[in-house]
Simulated scan of single mutants.
Amino acid sequence: MSWYMPPETAPQDRVWMAFPRESATLGESSAAREAGYQAWTAVAHAVAEFEPVTMIADPTEISRAKNMLGSGIEVIERPIEHFWTRDSGPTFVQAGDGSLAAVDWIFNAWGAPDPAEWQNDRGLARFIAGIAGVPVVSSLLVNEGGGIHTDGDGTVFATETVQLDPDRNPLADKARIEAEFARTLGAKKVIWLPQGLTRDYDSFGTRGHVDIVATFASPGRVLIHDQPNAGHPDHAVMARIRAILETETDAKGRRLELIPVPAPEAIHDQGGFNDWSYINHLVVNGGVIACGFGEAKADARAADILGAAYPGRRVVTVDAREIFARGGGVHCITQHQPCARK
């Protein structure tokens, strides 16, 4: 059977998330942990305005999750280590008849050397697929949902430092990865970007996820991160990436229309140069959950750009600074499940 990944703008059945649990990622102090809990909860409530949310919670956090989320969000108990569901959860795909399946990539915590850090996460994709009642498409590729973007029309974005990472896929080359994306995602063309944003190579980073760099608003139209400040290292990174995309065509031979989304003015946070990006948003039924960074002018400008890129959808901005401080954004902590076509 052949599979393809629909665009993220396709109708959705629900969004899956994972509630934070105590860890170095969540924070060492009670104040830091509380800020993390609140950030994940705010995103869940924003999504729930548009469609159902199902939250996976570790047994150590089940009571807190239910209390903070309230009765409107389903909470399911299961042991987990990480709470970035875009990466540890499944990637949903469709068959030609419109039925759903779930791709189970190998997850090793972004190339982490210690299996103890992801032993429970390894089975999360199959667990979610079982609850969703869909078959599993197994893959031997170490990959994460944040490491790919598709236009739903045969084109896939990937990053050389992710799928070709020797701590992920030491024996893989581009041809093998492209063949696997063709089998699992229906990819007809993979556009390779050389790297991700600078901060993404720090200790909590993913080593280059594309979902903070560029995404398809629709076939042929690409929203791209824009760092206008030449003092930020991502200014040069994005100039290189933009130059590549300006010469590319998609799987149907279309030249890509690039829509820059300027970053906030602040270029530092407590960890150094930040990676604040409005690209890491979530498209939902009738809406867009956008990242906010406490800058009214920049947040509003980004919301206007996203609203124009996704006509007919209401943009809701959620403060994402606490999520970014832990290594990701709104897109990273969510995993959408498309509706089966009839």
Rank of each mutant, 00 (worst) to 15 (best):
M1R: 12
S2R: 13
W3T: 08
T9N: 07
T9M: 10
T9S: 15
P11K: 07
Q12R: 15
D13I: 01
M17K: 08
M17F: 07
R21L: 13
E22L: 11
T25I: 14
E28H: 08
S29G: 09
S30P: 00
A32I: 02
R33P: 01
R33Y: 02
Y37R: 14
Y37G: 06
Y37T: 01
Q38L: 12
W40E: 04
A42Q: 14
V43M: 06
A44S: 13
H45W: 08
A48C: 05
P52I: 03
V53P: 03
V53K: 02
T54R: 08
M55N: 01
S63W: 00
R64D: 06
M68N: 11
M68P: 00
S71T: 10
P79D: 12
I80K: 05
S88A: 10
G98F: 09
G98W: 08
L100R: 13
V103F: 00
P113V: 05
P113S: 14
P113F: 02
D114L: 06
D114F: 07
W118N: 10
L124Q: 10
A125C: 03
F127D: 01
I131K: 15
A132F: 00
L140F: 00
L141Y: 02
I148Y: 04
I148D: 02
G152F: 09
G154R: 12
A158F: 02
E160I: 01
E160F: 02
V162I: 11
L164T: 04
P166D: 09
R168I: 01
I177Q: 04
A179S: 14
E180V: 12
R183Y: 04
A187F: 05
K188A: 11
K189F: 06
L193Y: 03
R199F: 07
R199W: 08
T206D: 14
A214R: 02
G220L: 11
R221Y: 06
V222N: 06
H225N: 12
Q227K: 13
P228T: 11
N229K: 09
P233I: 11
M238V: 02
A239M: 10
R240W: 00
I241E: 07
L245M: 13
L245I: 03
L245R: 08
L245C: 10
T247H: 13
T249A: 14
D250S: 10
A251V: 00
K252G: 12
G253S: 09
R255Q: 15
E257V: 12
L258K: 10
P260I: 06
V261R: 11
A263C: 13
E265G: 09
D269N: 15
N274R: 10
I279K: 06
V283D: 03
V284M: 07
G287C: 08
G287W: 01
I289Y: 08
I289G: 09
C291E: 14
E295T: 03
E295L: 07
K297W: 01
A300M: 03
A300I: 09
R301L: 12
R301F: 00
A303D: 10
D304I: 01
L306Q: 05
G307D: 03
A308T: 12
A309I: 04
G312F: 05
R313G: 07
V315C: 05
V318D: 10
A320T: 06
R321L: 07
E322I: 06
F324V: 09
Q335A: 13
H336R: 10
Q337C: 01
C339V: 11
C339K: 15
K342S: 13
